[in-house]
Amino acid sequence: MISVEKLHVRQGEFSLSDISFKLAEGAYGILVGRSGCGKTTLLEAVCGLRSITSGKILLGTKDVTTLKPGERDVGYVPQDGALFPHLSVARQLAFALVLRKAKPKQIEERVEELAERLGVSHLLDRMPDALSGGERQRVALGRALSIRPRYLCLDEPLSALDDETHDEIYELLVQTVKGTGVTVLHITHNKREVENLADVVFRMSGNELSCE
């Protein structure tokens, strides 16, 4: 479960105040709202990437409000994937595992498994600049899933893709994420994604968050 209680975030001129919501364990939550209303700020606060003024964030039963992003068990995929430009696909997928000092054999097996699941096995030696938009998002998703996070935060992961690739990655999300027990918070403007992926829809308007 992702539970946010009376969250206040201040970032320069912009602020979010008194935001509360609950997303059940294993549910797929979609966050919608106008551009600039604070969706990304809220998502980043859940990931631990924004310092908050007050309030509480719980992931499961654990209060993670003061924990570092890497201690929260959250996978994060930003809009364009943000693949590290200097690392090959294999090294992107292995990045978090290397940080956790996993054994080379374990890393190799996990990278192969992820690559197969995401359909990027033939791209393992490629650098990000040699990938298409859809391939990048597959790798970004794989990198976020590499540590088997219990929570996944997706910031408009399909918005920069053409229609065909959009459908392809959308199907991938349905197959690899939805219903697998991972709790997902996903920002989108796309109605089809809302209709087909969402168990719960949160709408941000002004400084208010409503559940649909």
Binding site: C47, K68, P69, G70, P78, A82, A96, R143, S146, I147
Partner: peptide, 23 residues
């Protein structure tokens, strides 16, 4: 964004700097 992703993957600020920003 790169540092943000690195932080969620388990880097502290120093590791994000050396592994992601410096290259």
């Amino acid at each position: 964004r790169y540092e943000k992703v690195a932080l969620t993957l388990g880097c502290n600020r120093s590791k994000a700097f050396w592994l992601v920003v410096m290259p």
